[in-house]
Design a protein around this nucleic acid. Structure first.
Length: 571
RNA sequence: CGGGAUAUAGCGCAGCUUGGUAGCGCAUCUGCCUGGGGGGCAGAGGGUCGCAGGUUCAAAUCCUGCUAUUCCGACCA
């Protein structure tokens, strides 16, 4: 490609509304442009990268035995009613009507459509297992789109769905997909980790996420230093303290705490160790509970894990915090003065809270706390559950090592769905006994457009993007000095361009009538891995300069050797 | 959903307090110079100041409403 025939669209200044580095660089390098909140146009350079990612994903999916199809973005609401997700999905699901006033959705995912397809097309166990995938646009009406294509509303996703007659068969395909994902992220040249994950709104049992490690990631990933255990913090189990609860040493006292509405205020004003305090969070109970509200207790220095909490029996899902009015009506005190003593609603305590003694908590009376509370004596022994986020230094749930935490960008997610969708949609085949059998499903997603941003988060410097070779928009840049005056330079540049193009290399030939500095900056901003600089100065000695974007190393190479050198380096 | 901020040339911003001719840098176009790191000189084009009302002789500027964008929060006990 010649820049004179191309839309390079690079920008010198950093757009003011771009927060993270990948978003800034994608705008500056002319990869994407925003059309509206969460909606992006892909410019030629961005599209080239996107396509390269797609190609790697396709190659590895095909290699792993998956078969490509393409399903519509617009889906009839009927299917979503069948699975109950029309109600469950919430406002993220964009609902539209056609001219006949029939309901449709813009597909945020395709379980319904694929299950509808397979229940019609597949009727015998002999046709299974089957693994179908597509690379398709998804739409999720995100609460807060941000970070450019990292969390966009419209985005490109590879989604695969497998169908089986047995759990064993599903597990086999699940493992094949797990391995294929590792190959994909290896080839993409990214630093990533597969982690144990929650299944979220998609549903199902076993699940792993693939995270690209980056500071700007939106998820907390938990690692053990004593094994290869890794999990999303949503899913990482906080083990019960091994030491038994210490015996009570204090009597409970009622203390006036008019200015302590938060744990922090309580701790600083009364010199209480934060590990001796308890937070009381009031959430709504589900319809089957006898009570409207439930109290959740975590230690003052811990955070509630909402995913764990909403899975508890009698806790309403999605987790909903009670309003101040509801709390006052039920407890008689407002937030800031709540605690387990003489509390009239059911209490669920975190494991670490259950192991506490002589602790402080609200008195359920405005402006007062109890200090020196002990379970059994001052409050009934609570129901105990794991409801907190793990923290750095916690013992690993695998039994070996302690936990550390890093940020990750979720770029892949695989699930064993089981019969969640096939059952509600009655997707069955005849088995070997000639009996109807509901299929077991797996589903496997990769955020293709998000990978482009994630790759930049991991690969950039002050000058711009540093693409891994496998997904660079161009592999080689030809940068001629003063080409429009020097015939010699132009001739050599043309010759390189043809030779590399014929060799199947993606070349960007900067034939603009620009000054050298402009061309250098643009090629570096765009992250092209290899550059050949041609100028009269070195041509005098039959040399040109080779420059590596990642290492920054420069090398003088003989004019007639540089093309061969680069082609060799690419293999 | 709650709170804050912003909206002026393609991009980044000033002007608004104290109402009175629409401004800067970059980019764009023309010419000349320069030609190994976003160069120089000279000239040019480009704006219903987010939208709709209101106040006023006069509104980018003051008032009201709306829209869009963006940041923070949504762990608060």
């Amino acid at each position: 490609m010649r820049t004179s025939n191309y839309l390079l669209s690079t920008v010198k200044e950093t757009p003011s509304d771009a927060e993270v580095i990948s978003h800034q660089l994608m705008l500056r390098a002319g990869m994407v442009r925003k059309l509206a909140s969460g909606l992006y146009t892909w410019l030629p350079t961005g599209l080239r990268v996107l396509r390269k990612v797609e190609t790697i994903v396709r190659e590895e999916m095909n290699r792993a035995g998956a078969i490509e199809i393409l399903m519509p973005v617009v889906q009839p609401a009927d299917l979503w009613h069948e699975t109950g997700r029309w109600e469950k999905f919430g406002p993220e699901l964009l609902r539209i009507k056609d001219r006949h006033q029939r309901d449709f959705v813009l597909g945020p995912t395709h379980e319904e459509v694929i299950t509808e397809l397979v229940r019609k097309e597949v009727s015998s166990y002999k046709q299974l297992p089957l693994n179908l995938y597509q690379v398709q646009t998804k739409f999720r009406d995100e609460v807060r789109p941000r970070f450019g294509v990292m969390r966009a509303r419209e985005f490109t996703m590879k989604d695969a769905y497998s169908f089986h007659t047995s759990q064993e068969c599903l597990e086999k395909t699940y493992q094949v997909m797990f391995d294929a994902y590792c190959r994909i992220f290896d080839r993409l040249g990214l630093e990533y980790r597969p982690v144990i994950a929650d299944t979220g709104s998609i549903g199902g049992s076993a699940s792993h996420e693939f995270h690209v490690l980056a500071q700007s990631g939106e998820d907390d990933i938990v690692f053990s230093d004593g094994s290869d255990y890794a999990a999303n913090i949503e899913k990482a189990e906080a083990l019960a303290p091994t030491a038994p609860r210490a015996a009570a040493t204090k009597t409970m006292e009622l203390v006036d705490t008019p200015n302590a509405k938060t744990i922090e205020e309580l701790v600083t004003q009364f010199e209480l160790p934060i590990e001796k305090t308890v937070k009381t969070l009031i959430v709504k109970a589900d319809e089957e509970s006898e009570h409207d509200l439930i109290a959740l207790l975590v230690r003052g220095d811990h955070e509630l894990n909402e995913i764990k909490a909403e899975k508890l029996e009698h806790v309403a899902a999605p987790l909903t915090f009670a309003s101040e009015e509801e709390i006052r009506a039920a407890v008689g005190a407002g937030p800031g003065s709540l605690g387990p003593v003489k509390l009239s609603i059911p209490v669920i305590a975190d494991r670490s809270v259950a192991a506490m003694s002589d602790f402080g908590a609200g008195a359920n009376e405005d402006g007062k706390h109890y200090f020196g509370i002990n379970w059994g004596r001052d409050a009934a022994e609570p129901e105990v559950a794991d409801i907190r986020n793990v923290v750095v230094g916690d013992p690993s749930p695998c039994g070996q090592g302690v936990l550390s935490i890093a940020r990750g960008i979720e770029v892949g997610h695989i699930f064993q769905l089981g019969d969640n969708y096939s059952k509600s949609m009655n997707a069955a085949v005849l088995n070997e006994q000639g009996k109807n059998q509901v299929m077991t499903m797996g589903c496997y997603g990769i955020g293709v457009s998000r990978i482009v941003a994630a790759a930049i988060e991991q690969n950039n410097d002050d000058a711009g993007i540093i693409w891994p070779e496998s997904i660079a928009p161009f592999t080689v840049a030809i940068i001629p000095m003063n080409m429009h005056k020097s015939h010699r330079v132009a001739e050599v540049a043309e010759q390189f361009y043809q030779a590399l193009t014929e060799a199947g290399v993606d070349v960007l030939f900067d034939d603009r009538k620009e000054r050298p500095g402009v061309m250098f900056k643009d090629m570096e901003l765009c992250g092209i891995p290899h550059a050949i600089v041609i100028g009269d100065r070195s041509l005098d000695n039959q040399l040109v300069e080779y420059k590596n974007r990642r290492t920054g190393e420069k090398e003088e190479v003989a004019v007639d050797a540089v093309v061969a050198k680069i082609i060799a380096a690419l293999k």
